[in-house]
């Protein structure tokens, strides 16, 4: 069968490379709708590698599975979702095989998460100091003077003004940009090696967003951090990321170094998206070019390439067979255009 064939190809391309810092292989996560019982294949065979000190941007439109991919890695999926296949290896440790207790120990110490809404992390009833102290006590065994010193140092690293005052303040007393920095400080308190950030700057004003991205960039350099940024914003990707993974309909349709993605996008979907970003293309009149149609329903089986119905380069094979991943120059694309034999 075709799907098995595709998966086999993916496996072989991956196993030839040396082990990566983070290696996600053929990840599959499903969401079961409580009302209808229908199963949505939110993440459907996603594979990628991330090295130390690099930033990977997972980019795509709503419902493409980018957030579910991120939550699958740190195993913080909502109750309705479940990872049903694949491997996630952090320096050889299979995260999906760990017991919940072992995974909980890893969260914070090796992997940390920054959410779009800072109040997902913060409790409104506790001061910033209380909440920043928790990971430092728990994972670093700090208390008293050294604890306070470390907290102030972290707040300063995140360019938070008057840190002594902040420790005594409650979340509602701080601005949105300030809260997102506090959340960053909490995430990095126990020196994790991998940070996963889900749309960390989407709710921020432009000037605050730019400052926050600068901050993440500096932290990556000074701490040799690996970051996964989930975003719908190609501007964030251009500013911050080293590598880009474009998702569509639960699949990774394109992977490439960031400059290659912007210079020579491989997949027709990426090509179309990039024209939409800057509203740079018009139809000759005063209309912006759009992508016709909408993404497929992921609770229905998909025949062939999921982008085929909207694709301007569609070939006969696209309607029948799901394209495997083809290596192209510095990147890879799941698209039949890059097969030498497909028609």
């Amino acid at each position: 069968m075709n799907m098995i064939d595709t998966q086999a190809k993916r496996k072989t391309t991956v196993s030839q490379d040396p082990p990566a810092f983070l290696h996600v292989d053929n990840l599959r996560t499903e969401i079961t709708s409580r009302r209808s019982g229908r199963v949505v294949r939110a993440v459907n065979g996603v594979s990628f590698r991330l090295e130390r000190g690099r930033i990977l941007g997972i980019v795509g439109e709503s419902g493409c599975g980018k957030s579910m991919t991120a939550y699958s890695i740190i195993r913080l999926l909502p109750r309705s979702a479940r990872t049903v296949g694949g491997r996630i290896e952090l320096e050889g440790v299979d995260l999906l095989a760990l017991r919940e207790g072992e995974m909980a120990k890893l969260r914070g110490t090796r992997i940390a998460m920054i959410f779009q809404d800072p109040m997902m992390t913060l409790d409104p009833l506790f001061t910033i100091g209380d909440q920043l102290a928790e990971p430092l006590r728990k994972h670093k065994g700090l208390s008293g003077g050294p604890l306070r010193e470390r907290m102030l140092e972290l707040l300063r690293q995140f360019s938070i003004s008057s840190p002594e005052t902040r420790l005594r303040q409650y979340p509602h007393e701080l601005s949105g940009g300030m809260l997102q920095r506090v959340v960053g400080a909490i995430a990095l308190a126990a020196d994790p090696e991998l940070v996963i950030a889900d749309e960390p700057t989407t709710a921020l004003d432009p000037t605050v967003q730019a400052q926050y991205l600068d901050l993440l960039d500096n932290l990556k350099k000074s701490r040799d951090l690996s970051l996964i940024i989930v975003t719908h914003d190609f501007g964030v990707a251009a500013r911050l990321c080293d590598d880009i993974l474009v998702m569509y309909a639960g699949r990774a349709v394109e992977k490439a170094p960031v400059e290659a993605t912007f210079d020579t996008p491989l997949h027709p979907y990426t090509q179309a998206l990039l024209k939409l970003v800057n509203l740079s293309d018009t139809d000759g009149g005063d209309h912006f070019v759009t992508i016709e149609g909408s993404p497929p329903d992921l609770s229905e089986p998909i025949e062939g390439c999921p982008f085929a119905p909207r694709c301007p380069h569609k070939m006969p094979i696209c309607a029948d067979e799901d394209p495997p991943e083809f290596a192209v120059d510095s990147g890879a694309a799941s698209c039949w255009l890059y097969s030498e034999t497909a028609t």
Binding site: S175, M178, T207, A210, V236, A237, A238, R239, E259
Partner: peptide, 23 residues
């Protein structure tokens, strides 16, 4: 300052951002 904070259209397009002090 506001327009200098607009994110780049391309990874190589790094323009000078004007930092504003404080809030």
């Amino acid at each position: 300052a506001l327009f200098s904070a607009v994110l780049p259209e391309h990874p190589r397009a790094h323009h000078q951002r004007i930092e504003l002090e404080g809030e």
